[in-house]
Design a protein around this nucleic acid. Structure first.
Length: 273
DNA sequence: TGCCAGGGGGCTC
DNA sequence: GAGCCCCATGGC
């Protein structure tokens, strides 16, 4: 058992070999969180959780444990996935370092908008933009936090509004993307075949192959863990640590997870691990 | 086809 | 510490 819901407001995670909250938060799939000595405050859509590490467990406090159970993908045993990846010898150090990462099941609209803003941008800058967007157009939550704006709230943001938040030349894409999302059958996306899904996502203004892959991997309604967002950084990273397995890894049914392990591993190597 | 459009972070010198 | 490149996408 990875975790259990212990009351109406609490999830207790017991298996920390496959749940490393620090690694998850820093793995480039979640941006709206605040870190303090007490733990993490995390906002997803209009949901809010406080996450604390205590000794040999992690406590997730929230209004809706079932939402965050699904968000952290707690029905999936990532140790089975890691066992499967063990055959790639070159990957073993990365799996050992990043093995507590999970692929989150996040909100579709939030992922589309976040990754459009992230394109050709750096994390610090676009996180500031995302938080600004929430503060100006989202709904107030407890503790001085703000929900990510709903589609209806986003529809009120003008091109000038996006520019004022530092979106730069992405501003017109975002205005158009919100209109397209409003017209889209979002609930129907999960029943499309992969070609149709790609076509639908790539039709959104500001969404190219990289953003499309991120949305397919990190949106809870799609959660396609074979999808691997490939950028110049990942190409270099795989060439560096797993040149002989590079092609097989990118084509693997767990390519999306592999990419997270490699990302985390190299981040730590650069910090002198 | 190849360039440009915020702006900040990371790199080299 | 100044100058350089990088970043992912759409439009021209």
């Amino acid at each position: 058992m990875i975790a259990k819901i212990i009351d109406n407001n609490t999830i207790e995670v017991n298996d920390l070999t496959q749940f490393d909250i620090g690694a998850i938060m820093h793995s480039g799939q979640v941006f709206r969180y605040y870190e303090s000595q007490y733990g993490y405050r995390l906002i997803v859509g209009s949901n809010y959780a406080v996450i604390r590490e205590c000794k040999d467990k992690v406590i997730i406090e929230c209004r809706d444990p079932h939402y965050f159970w699904n968000y952290f993908d707690l029905d999936t045993d990532y140790n089975l996935i890691k066992k499967d990846l063990h055959k790639f010898v070159s990957l073993r150090p990365a799996v050992a370092a990043g093995g507590g990462i999970r692929i989150l099941r996040s909100d579709f609209v939030e992922m589309v908008i976040s990754f459009i803003i992230s394109a050709n941008n750096n994390i610090k800058r676009f996180t500031k933009t995302l938080n600004g967007l929430a503060e100006q157009y989202g709904t107030a939550l407890p503790d001085g936090l703000f929900s990510f704006p709903t589609l209806a709230q986003l529809a009120e943001v003008t091109e000038a509004g996006y520019k004022a938040l530092g979106c730069g030349y992405r501003a017109p894409y975002l205005v158009k993307a919100v209109r397209q999302l409003q017209a889209m059958d979002i609930d129907g996306l999960s029943s499309l075949n992969d070609d149709m899904l790609d076509k639908e996502l790539l039709s959104i203004s500001g969404v190219g192959p990289k953003v499309c892959a991120c949305v397919k991997l990190f949106s809870g309604n799609i959660h396609q863990i074979s999808t691997c967002p490939i950028d110049t950084w990942l190409k270099k990273a795989l060439t560096q640590i797993a040149p002989e397995d590079r092609v097989a890894l990118l084509d693997h049914k767990y390519a999306g997870i592999t990419q997270q392990y490699v990302f985390y591993y190299l981040q730590h190597m650069r910090q002198g691990l």
